[in-house]
Write a protein that binds this DNA or RNA. Sequence first.
DNA 1: TCGATTTCTGAAATCGATTTCAGACTTAGG
DNA 2: CCTAAGTCTGAAATCGATTTCAGAAATCGA
Lengths: 363, 363
Amino acid sequence: MDKKPVIAPKGRQQPRVKIEDVARKANVSPATVSRVLNHPDIVRPELRDRVMRHINDLAYTRDSAARALKSGRMRTVGVIVPTLALGIFAEGVEALQNRLSESGYTLFIANSQYDQRRELQELQSLIERGIDGIVLVGASHGRELRSLIEQASVPVITTYVAKAGGGIPAIGIDNESATREMTEYLLRLGHVRFGAIANVVAASNDRSRARLEGIQRALSDAGLPLKPTQIVKADYSLAQGRSALRQLLTDHPDTTAVICTTDTLAIGAMAEARKMGLAVPATLSITGFDDVELAAQMDPPLTTVSVPAAEIGRGAADYLINAIAGSPVPRSVVLPYRLVMRSSSAPPRTSVRPTRRGRSRDQ
Amino acid sequence: MDKKPVIAPKGRQQPRVKIEDVARKANVSPATVSRVLNHPDIVRPELRDRVMRHINDLAYTRDSAARALKSGRMRTVGVIVPTLALGIFAEGVEALQNRLSESGYTLFIANSQYDQRRELQELQSLIERGIDGIVLVGASHGRELRSLIEQASVPVITTYVAKAGGGIPAIGIDNESATREMTEYLLRLGHVRFGAIANVVAASNDRSRARLEGIQRALSDAGLPLKPTQIVKADYSLAQGRSALRQLLTDHPDTTAVICTTDTLAIGAMAEARKMGLAVPATLSITGFDDVELAAQMDPPLTTVSVPAAEIGRGAADYLINAIAGSPVPRSVVLPYRLVMRSSSAPPRTSVRPTRRGRSRDQ
DNA sequence: TCGATTTCTGAAATCGATTTCAGACTTAGG
DNA sequence: CCTAAGTCTGAAATCGATTTCAGAAATCGA
């Protein structure tokens, strides 16, 4: 006689507690148990309590797959960030998750490494998972991605930018306006010879591109348009900030103000300036963008733009929760950034204009 | 014959394409379509291709809820980190996600803010979601958490530590041994008056606690046990590193070496030392732990311990993938850390012993 | 007290994919 | 040429919770 394969699959030893088990123990129908869990207010209080007790006794937790299948909603949201290595994204994701968690949602996370193809793949995977909402970063997305979202008819919101094309709502700051304001501030200080360090290498990094445009526009308006050699492109590493500054000062030794599109780059630039024996801000003013924790602790503290990352994360969560529930939602939310004037910026040494320090908004 | 499906954005709810629709179009049964998708090799090639064509035509994607319900597997893993604000965790999570993604898994993320109660809640929520595996951080977990995991019989692995209690497998480094080695290195340089700055405020931060123990043990073994006032406890912020150093030097002005359990603290300490006019490393050696990006760019570059965060993330992913598949898995994986000797550490000014710099392993 | 509401509960259908079981068809062997 | 072995495919049961529908019980008004 042939023996049956007795190799017990080890995955399913524990017979999972089902709603029916609870129902039997409590002498009610599964329907009632379900109601206790989902609409407690329509069940008679004493019955509700009795059922609840048995639910706790048996440590029953409902099977989310079955639940999702029947109800059509997963109570799950996905987010795709370029990378988690940037504190500003990590902070936003953390706030997003916290807020979602409060509302009973769980967060899928994925990263694209600034690669639109990868972003599309991850999105595809998330949609197959049946997510109820999706959070993206930035405004640069292929049309494939947009049509995928549309086809899945999943609520979406993009973050860290003030607006996005294709009818996608956004929550974030106006990056261009922020650097324009920063540039104007430096102009007012009396600077005339500028340099810019921008992490615009990644094709999909529209934030930094917008920031660079803000710089260019402000300087053009002031009659001081940047020459190509006054703009050094970099990726988002600290080391590139160093080499960028060196290159910039090689081409334009008389530069008095360097505007970076990222704190990381600015910090790298400051490190290099120190190494080159240039006093900041006496000989060289340097500004950043993001206001990472370290910015305020630098020597000298870094002038930068503060981005409300946590608020962006929370706002994105609220937006999706409402959109999923069918509540009305704003088309876009523009959050205020904050120019943080610290001591890495000052009037240039050779300035003929009087110093005007009254503008400082920080400290 | 068959025209491409025109995406009609009208109508709020796009009637989802079901396996039955594909079956009807292809003139087969739903069972066959399912087989094509899950076990392509057992379907006659020409039939398989025909079905595949229709699957693509209709842009069919299977409902993951129904799939999970029937199969009992979600192809989903969850991770709970203390916070994402620390680059070292963000890096690990990113690596984890990337590796999981390659294997068709999706990652749920949650954070505990170093609060065991929150960790338990988030875990509960993840288990209800039916995750197939779970990644934790550190060895300090309540017994409730362990029993919850056991009851759900979900594969688990904890990270950033070399071992954890309760039969939970771990992947990470031996934190205590790392700081012990670091301390011994400073002892060899000739230091005798030490101070320690440790972020041991959070109850669940066993990593830093182990690191502190490593320091204490090494110094005790050398006959130089730390007095309580030589240990300053802090949280994980840069600002606390500053104030901690100030306090330490107030109590013990003659300190020559400060060992921090975190780069963030060390960087704060360096900033404060500079402000106080203390030369690093001439008058004061400072060391950190983690080797964050900035550490190498400091002035002077920071001596620290490099933690293989990405490797930990990848390793955790591999572990779970195997465990879920029922493949054999190691009980624990101890990864090598790397002492990175940079210039923030040097022999003390008053040292009588000869300088021994040959130990530097970095650069 | 009796019928009319209102409130509450249970039986059963349902969500969509997977998989067992058995039957249909094909190929091989004698 | 016919049975035996092997290959594929489809019908139908199943996963577990939700929800509709209708009936039972309780409350109310007259």
